[in-house]
Design a protein around this nucleic acid. Structure first.
Lengths: 202, 202
DNA sequence: TCTTGATTTGACCATCTGGTCAAACTCACG
DNA sequence: CGTGAGTTTGACCAGATGGTCAAATCAAGA
């Protein structure tokens, strides 16, 4: 285990390679389904070498999740009370959909964890996530009070956005099995845009 | 392994107990995360005894999935070209939401499988599911042509229904972490109802 | 009751998996 | 160079896990 001095060139490179490999493996097989050997192989390291950088499989998973949670929630963080309500929400939705396209592994990493009861991030959900959502639903409710957008249950509004956008990453196989060659996002973007324009129109 | 005569009383009871236990365990931990011992214990059998009824862990999983696929797709099957378009669709949505509430384990069983690339049901997706969806989107498109409902991408319309309704079962922990004590479905039902009424209004 | 097939189990096995460790090797820097 | 910290690895281990098997037990019809 490297001391806690400034990380060396090699440490930076290997830690990054491990996390990248772990993202591939954990997102495709879940925590239990992933093996340390698999991650090590994909990172181009031997297993003992990998365990020189992270003390355990669980530690890699935790590092991944907590490192990516911020990225994952950034779009919601950026929802601005000062902006135009409809534009703010639609822009949030577009960013979420874009993340589904560009960061599907991250989406599935969280999906795997959530479907199985989030044993490793339960805390982050009921603390950080809840706090963030509460902050933003206050903004949404404010806009509803001002008649800027239709009155809806703000929590369920947010759930609907998550469900709709992440569906394309999480259940990618199913979507592709049905759409065939068609690019899922080509149709998804105008669809969700239309959906939320109609839904939110005051 | 019992011969393929008519199943005895004991065979019926034990097979049912095994599938029930397997549903609990597979839906909570995924295929890889589930252990045969765990399923056997939950079914009240010893491991060798369980393996007397099913030849392998994989066989249990396959039996479960194929046995439940029909149940899972029944609501879509019932979408009737002869009925009132808006009522047919809203009734489909209500049934899907009801299944999310009453059969969350089944939902998570499929979610687990799908998130990890559906290695064991890829065939059923691109054959049975695709055929069913194609049949029903034809109906939807017909209704759109007649101006009975708004014109939308029919595949994405169906995806949106799946995403919205199954979200409450699949990501239950997250929903509860945010809603607290509030019953998720109390708010969800009017929300999705409103959503699709607005979306589908011609 | 007796017999036969169905059911159940304890003991066992091979493999996989997360993790350890001491020894070897490499790198940067004085 | 030389040297000490940083890095890598082969060999190894303990426990978990899927699965097997022969022997024991049970159930039901003749």
């Amino acid at each position: 285990m490297p001391k806690d001095r400034a990380p060396t060139r090699i440490q930076k490179k290997n830690r990054a390679a491990i996390l990248e490999a772990a993202l591939n493996v954990f997102s495709a097989h879940g925590f239990r389904g992933a093996t340390v050997d698999q991650i090590a192989a994909e990172a181009g390291l031997s297993k003992p070498n990998l365990l020189y950088y992270f003390p355990s499989k669980e530690a890699i998973h935790t590092a991944l999740l907590s490192g990516l949670l911020e990225t994952w929630l950034a779009p919601l963080h950026d929802l601005d009370a000062g902006g135009d309500p409809m534009e703010e929400i639609l822009s949030y939705i577009r960013r979420k959909l874009q993340m589904s396209r560009e960061l599907p592994r991250e989406s599935r990493l969280f999906a795997n964890e959530l479907v199985q009861g989030a044993p490793r991030i339960h805390d982050a959900l009921s603390k950080d996530l809840k706090a963030l959502v509460d902050e933003k639903t206050t903004i949404l409710t404010g806009w509803m009070d001002q008649g800027k957008i239709a009155r809806l249950h703000p929590y369920h509004l947010i759930f609907s956005i998550w469900a709709l956008t992440q569906h394309y990453a999480d259940f990618d196989v199913q979507v592709r099995a049905i759409l065939g060659d068609e690019d899922p996002f080509k149709g998804a973007e105008p669809f969700v845009d239309t959906l939320y324009r109609k839904l939110l129109a005051p």
